[in-house]
Amino acid sequence: MPIKVPDRSPAEAALQQEGVEVIPDATALRQDIRPLRILLLNLMPTKIATEVQIARLLSHTPLQIELSLLTTATYQPRNTPFEHLKAFYRTLDEVKDERFDGMIVTGAPVETLPFEKVDYWTELKEILAWSRTNVFRRFGICWGGQALLYAAYGVEKIQYPEKLFGVFEQRVQAPRSELMRGFPDSFPTPVSRWTGVDPRGIAAKPELRVLADSPQTGIGLVEHVPTGDVFCFNHLEYDTETLRNEFTRDVSLNPTTALPHNYFPGNSAAADPANTWRAYGYLMFMNWITTLYRDTLYDLSALSPRPENDWGAGI
């Protein structure tokens, strides 16, 4: 099925150029079905690229998806034109009376800061508190996943002595999880982070289940079993060139930056990398959307608040 993104947005044009079917507003309104409403809280500095990456993965399901874009009101991104934010993004005040089947929270380049030192941390906690009554299920990516875990359960992050950077094999630890349906025993995933989640914090919460991990990069994917919320600390949504672009940026700041692991053929920065992970990104999001469609309520106004000890209470 096609995906509905904001009309005339850069994501719409990019997806159409790739051959992804995008449904216009007028056509979506004529169809006698309820689309799944997904809210993307986009905290990445490369907002337009991230919109395309997430929309691409959401489009590979048999369901109609309506993607809405959310940004912070208390922090003005420096790398995205104000006109783009004004045209296509909303803030919490503008969506607070709406309800959504799912919310995706992206990563952000703030991972080495304590959570409380992040400029928009107070607002992010407000968004998570609002999500207790207005969103059925959440999906956190990289720092977004770490932030969700910390806000929900107080699971701390840990900092590594060097950046985990490259393509690493992830071992499936819970093959019976519906999110892992169709995955092989291991699969490649782009990783780009200085931090991870404390395994002791995960082990202390029996409702949290590790779905995939790596000897080199630690826990990569966690599920909150009672709700189906997902915390993915790696980047199956990345484009083929994303790690190259990050490497070029990092080298400009530090010429001794190491090449990303298992990314450039022959370990040569002059070689063109191959995308070995996209099929698994499609598979993961298809599994997530399929279970979301099965479990969510047709009438979102009937959503019930989550328990008081869940999603941000006390943190």
Rank of each mutant, 00 (worst) to 15 (best):
V5Q: 02
D213G: 14
L41E: 07
A152P: 01
I104L: 11
Y160S: 08
A271F: 01
P62H: 11
I219T: 07
P206N: 10
V225C: 10
H224G: 07
T71Y: 04
P273H: 01
L221H: 15
C142F: 00
T257K: 06
Y160N: 06
P109G: 08
N267E: 10
V210T: 07
T242A: 06
A204C: 13
L92C: 05
K125M: 13
V5I: 05
I219V: 15
L58P: 00
R90W: 10
Y282Q: 11
T133I: 03
D213R: 11
I315W: 08
V225H: 06
D185N: 13
R37E: 04
Y120M: 11
K163Y: 05
P260Q: 07
P10T: 14
G182P: 10
P226D: 11
R209V: 15
Y120D: 10
I289L: 02
F136R: 03
P188W: 09
V225I: 08
K157L: 09
I104R: 00
G201I: 10
Q17G: 08
F100Y: 08
E237N: 08
V172W: 12
L39T: 03
K157V: 03
Q76R: 15
T74P: 01
L253V: 06
V52P: 02
G196S: 15
Y282M: 07
N79K: 14
P81H: 07
I33L: 15
S68M: 10
E123G: 05
V222L: 09
P109D: 12
M44A: 06
A152M: 02
T112S: 14
T46I: 08
V222R: 02
N287R: 00
T61Y: 03
I289M: 13
Q173F: 08
L67I: 06
F165W: 07
K157Q: 10
V95G: 05
W277H: 04
P6L: 02
T195V: 15
S131L: 10
S268L: 04
K96S: 11
P109F: 09
R193I: 14
D101G: 01
L29P: 09
F233Q: 08
L148K: 02
L40H: 06
D185S: 15
I65P: 02
A203H: 12
L70F: 01
E241N: 08
M1E: 06
R181I: 07
S177F: 11
I33R: 13
E237S: 12
P184A: 15
L39G: 04
G144V: 13
Y293A: 10
T256L: 08
T50P: 00
I54D: 02
Y293N: 09
R200M: 11
R78Y: 06
G196T: 08
A271R: 00
Y153I: 01
S192G: 14
R209D: 04
F165C: 03
G281N: 00
